[in-house]
Design a protein around this nucleic acid. Structure first.
Lengths: 208, 208
DNA sequence: AAAAAAATCACCCTTTTGGGGTGATTCCTT
DNA sequence: AAGGAATCACCCCAAAAGGGTGATTTTTTT
C-alpha cells in the first residue's frame, strides 16, 4: 500500500485554511499533517512535519509567500510547493516559479483539480491552471508589429545581453559604425537615449 | 448549431499527415480544410482556406516551422497555430511561442488530447502538454545554490537590464564604489571580466 | 564569543564605450 | 521612382568600464 501524501497548509484565512484541510484530509491517500496561519509560525515547526507538498498562500501577514518559498525550500529541499492565490499577476507568478515553487493555482480552482494538482506535482508534473498557462504563453509572445527592423531588433537583443558595440560588430560581421548607426535609429524609434531605457522599453513592449 | 472548427495541417511526413487528417476529420465538429507537406506549398493557397487552427510541424523541408509562424500569422492573424513536434528543446519551444504559436504539443500526445487541445486553443485557452509545462516551470527556476550573495545577485540583475554603475548605485542607495566592489566580486566568482560574459554565465547557470 | 562571509566605501590607474551630430552609399521592396 | 533598410565614415567629449589594493562595518554562522 502506498504511503499517504503528506500536506501542510500555510494560509492566513481561517475559513479557507480549515476548508482546504477538511477537503484534502477527507480524500483517500491524502493527509494534512499541519496547518499554519503564517510563514513565521510555520518555520518553527514545519521541519518536523516533513510534508511532501506545501500549499502556500501569497498574501500572508509577516513574511510573504514569495519570500517564504526559498526559506521553505532550504529546510525541506525535497518538498514541493504549490502556490494558491487569488492574484494572477505575471510578475508574481514568475517570481514564485523562480523562487522554487512547483506550481501555481488560483483560488477559484475547483477542489477536485486541487487534489489532482497535488498528486501531479508529487509525481513530478507541473500543474498550472489554464489561466496561468495562458499568461505564460502570452508572456512569450513578441509584439508582431514592432517599429524596429529585423536588424535593429537583432542588435537590441544583443544589447540586452550586455554586449558592447564592438562585440556586436564582431558577432554580426559588420562595422562598428554600422552598429552605432543602428543603435541611433533604435533610440530614435523608441524615443530613448540610453541602453537601459531601450531595454526597458523593448521589454515593456515585448519587442525582444 | 455551431460551425465546424476548420483545421489545416502542415506536415511533411505523409503517413503522419494523413493520419492526423483522418483522425481529426472523423471527429464531430472538426473539419480538415487542407493539408500541405511544406510551408512553401501552403503559403500559396492557405489564405483561401482560412482555417481556425493550423497544426504545424517544426521540421519541414524549405522554410522551417519556427520561421513559418510569423508569416502565417501575417496572412491569417486570427488563426491559432499549434506546434506539433517530436522535439522538446527549451529554445525551440520558446522561439515558437515567441513567434506567435498558441500552443505546443509533442507527437506522442494521445489523439484524444490533440482533439481537445484544438478546441482549447480555439476557445482561447493555452494548451500545453504536461511536459512543456514542466519545461516552462523549470526554465523559471533559479539555481538555489548560487555562488553569489543576495546583493550580488541583485546587482547582476540590474546589469542584465543594461544599467550602468551609477544608475545601480542610485537605485540601491549605495555608493558608486560599493557597486564597483560588488561587480568585481561577481566577476571573480563567475570567473569572467565583462558585463556581457557575466550575464551570459548567469543566464546559463540560472543565477538570474 | 570567535570566525567567516557579506556589504560597505576609498583612491590609484588607463582604455574603452557611449551618445550626439551629420552625411553618404548601396540594396531591396514596393 | 520612392522609401525603408542596411551599410559605413568622421567629428566631438564625457562617462563608463575594468584592474589593483586595502579598509571598515554588519551580519551570519559556527
Amino acid at each position: 500500500m502506498n504511503r499517504n501524501i503528506k500536506i501542510t497548509i500555510i494560509e492566513d484565512d481561517e475559513t479557507i485554511r480549515n476548508g482546504y484541510a477538511y477537503l484534502i484530509g477527507a480524500t483517500e491517500g491524502y493527509e494534512v499533517v499541519s496547518t499554519y496561519c503564517s510563514f513565521d509560525e510555520a518555520i518553527k515547526k514545519i521541519g518536523a512535519d516533513h510534508p511532501d507538498v506545501i500549499l502556500l498562500d501569497i498574501e500572508l501577514p509577516g513574511t510573504n509567500g514569495i519570500d517564504a518559498i526559498p526559506k521553505l525550500k532550504k529546510i525541506l529541499p525535497q518538498c514541493f510547493i504549490l502556490i494558491l492565490t487569488v492574484y494572477e499577476s505575471e510578475k508574481l507568478i514568475f517570481n514564485a516559479l523562480g523562487n522554487g515553487a512547483s506550481g501555481y493555482l488560483t483560488k477559484n480552482t475547483p477542489s477536485a483539480k486541487i487534489i489532482e494538482s497535488i498528486k501531479e506535482v508529487k509525481e513530478g508534473g507541473g500543474p498550472m491552471s489554464i489561466n496561468i498557462a495562458k499568461l505564460v504563453i502570452r508572456s512569450f509572445q513578441k509584439n508582431q508589429e514592432s517599429p524596429l527592423s529585423k536588424r535593429e531588433t537583432q542588435i537590441l537583443e544583443l544589447i540586452g545581453e550586455g554586449k558592447s558595440r564592438s562585440q556586436i560588430a564582431k558577432e554580426l560581421f559588420i562595422d562598428l559604425e554600422t552598429v552605432r548607426s543602428h543603435i541611433k535609429n533604435i533610440y530614435n524609434k523608441l524615443d530613448v537615449n540610453s541602453r537601459a531605457d531601450a531595454i526597458k522599453m523593448a521589454k515593456q513592449n515585448k519587442l525582444i
